Simulated assay, not measured.
Amino acid sequence: MIGRLPLDEQLAALKSVLSRNEVLLEVLHRAAGLGLPGWYVTAGCLFQTVWNVATDRHPTSGIKDYDVFY
């Protein structure tokens, strides 16, 4: 169970799962280039990506938007 792993291993597992969503990777890449102060991607697309991977769906399935807050 991932939740019982040390934090660094949990973060590595999360990064591995999120990196399967090519749209999310593009959003992160583009947002990083905007020079916005303190920006972040909100949880909806992150949660849905994890859920999709855990349930053997395509990583982008059901995600209608990717919100960047700053």
Results as ranks from 00 to 15, higher is better:
Ala13Lys: 07
Leu14Met: 11
Asp65Gly: 05
Ala12Lys: 15
Trp39Lys: 06
Arg4Leu: 11
Tyr66Ser: 03
Ser61Arg: 07
Gly62Trp: 04
Tyr70Cys: 08
Gly44Lys: 10
Arg4Ala: 11
Asp65Ala: 13
Arg4Asp: 13
Leu25Cys: 10
Leu36Tyr: 08
Gln48Met: 14
Pro59Val: 01
Tyr40His: 13
Pro59Thr: 04
Ala54Ile: 03
Arg57Trp: 08
Val23Ala: 09
Asn52His: 03
Thr49Lys: 00
Leu14Cys: 11
Asp67Ala: 12
Ser61Tyr: 15
Asp8Asn: 13
Lys64Cys: 10
Leu25Glu: 14
Leu7Glu: 12
Arg30Gly: 01
Gln10Leu: 07
Val17Gln: 02
Leu7Asn: 07
Pro6Glu: 09
Gly35Trp: 05
Gly44Trp: 08
Gly35Asp: 06
Leu7Gln: 13
Glu22Arg: 12
Val53Ser: 01
Leu46His: 02
Val27Thr: 07
Thr49Gln: 01
Asp67Trp: 03
Leu36Pro: 00
Leu46Pro: 01
Ser61Val: 01
Ala54Thr: 06
His58Asn: 04
Ser19Thr: 07
Leu11Asp: 04
Thr55Gln: 09
Val68Ser: 08
Glu26Asp: 13
Thr42Tyr: 06
Leu46Asn: 03
Ala54Gln: 09
Leu24Ser: 04
Asp65Pro: 00
Val53Asp: 01
Tyr40Arg: 14
Leu5Asn: 02
Ser16Phe: 02
Val27Gln: 03
Val27Ile: 14
Leu36Thr: 01
Val27Ala: 05
Tyr70Trp: 13
Ala12Asp: 15
Met1Leu: 14
Gln10Val: 14
Ser19Leu: 06
Val68Tyr: 06
Tyr66Phe: 15
Ile63His: 02
Ala12Pro: 04
Thr55Trp: 10
Gly33Gln: 09
Gly3Pro: 01
Ala32Glu: 13
Lys15Tyr: 07
Gly35His: 05
Val27Lys: 04
Trp39Arg: 04
Tyr70Lys: 03
Leu46Phe: 03
Asp67Asn: 12
Ile2Asn: 11
Val27Asp: 03
Arg57Tyr: 09
Leu36Ser: 01
Leu28Ile: 06
Leu46Ser: 02
Ser19Pro: 01
Glu26Pro: 00
Lys15Gln: 14
Arg4Asn: 14
Arg30Glu: 15
Trp39Glu: 05
Phe69Arg: 12
Arg30Ala: 10
Ser61Lys: 08
Leu28Tyr: 06
Ala31Phe: 04
Cys45Ala: 15
Val27Phe: 05
Met1Arg: 15
Asn21Leu: 02
His29Gly: 01
Val41Ala: 12
Pro59Arg: 00
Ala12Phe: 08
Gly62Pro: 04
Arg4Gln: 11
Lys15Val: 08
Gln48Tyr: 03
Glu22Val: 07
Ile2Met: 11
Val17Tyr: 01
Ala31Ser: 13
Arg30Tyr: 08
Glu9Ala: 12
Trp51Tyr: 14
Glu26Gly: 00
Val68Trp: 06
Val23Thr: 12
Trp51His: 11
Leu34Val: 02
Asp65Met: 05
Leu34Ile: 02
Met1Asp: 13
His29Ser: 12
Gly33Arg: 07
Val27Met: 05
Thr42Met: 10
Leu7Trp: 10
Leu18Thr: 02
Leu34Phe: 07
Gly3Phe: 12
His58Glu: 15
Arg30Leu: 15
Ala12Trp: 08
Arg57Gln: 15
Leu28Lys: 10
Asn21Ala: 04
His29Thr: 07
Thr49Pro: 02
